[in-house]
Nucleic acid binder design. Sequence first.
DNA 1: GCCACCGGTGGC
DNA 2: GCCACCGGTGGC
Length: 265
Amino acid sequence: MEKRRTECPGLPPGWTREEVTRKSGLSAGKSDIYYYSPSGKKFRSKPQLTRALDGTLDLTSFDFRTGCMIPRKQKNRHKLRGEGPASNKSASQSKLHLGTTVPIRQTASIFKQPITKVTNHPDNKVKPDPQRVLEPPKQVFWEKRLQGLSASDMAQEMIKAIDLSKLLQGVGPTITGDALLSTIACALHSGSEAITGQLSTGLDNNPAIWLNPKQPLCKPFIVTDEDIWQQEEQVRRVRKRLEEAMMSEAVEHKMAESEWSTDGV
DNA sequence: GCCACCGGTGGC
DNA sequence: GCCACCGGTGGC
């Protein structure tokens, strides 16, 4: 085989390595190694590659020819973390940097990579996940855009949030609002037993009183059938509004589509 | 003008 | 002597 282009395990997903065997001339039989970025740019040498991946990946221990990370030698146990195998520093210089050298990860493991399942089967191959490669980068703090938003129905009328304040009350002076919700959410997700709240009395006045760590920091409460029904009803109303909204949008979409098709092409 | 391909050489 | 790296060029 003269040309081989393969995914490279030492580089981020999307980068490929190619080995081209020289066919003629004095150097016939020798081969050249090329790397291709996900965008298709070709790289002919390690310095070129290093410049392209600068700040993304440390290629100190990257073997350009094989495409693998060279494992650090275990012989010299005094060698500092982050020092490449080609380090020319003398022992005394190394000592000066003891504890101040910022460790640099020597592998590409900060990137999500396909996993090779090792079996005895010789045809076993790495199967990259195309979905992950195609995943678009997220905008920084994109979640922030959702902050402070409230749901509203089609008539721009705000949908009232489910009101738990009457039913659930925190214990102690600071357990209100978000803190109350957090403590309940935490108990819901971390434990499997029934949530009863703190059963000890006098918690508001006596800071030394025994708290049950398995229960949220709220007063005992009873959820009635009426409470459950009210919540369900609220969810039903929201679902109905959503359904109506989606239906009307689908109708609009259909109309726009039919206009487009009758426009003539 | 681009680029695949091979030659030349500096550093080891 | 080897080879990583890069220059140069012929073919398109």
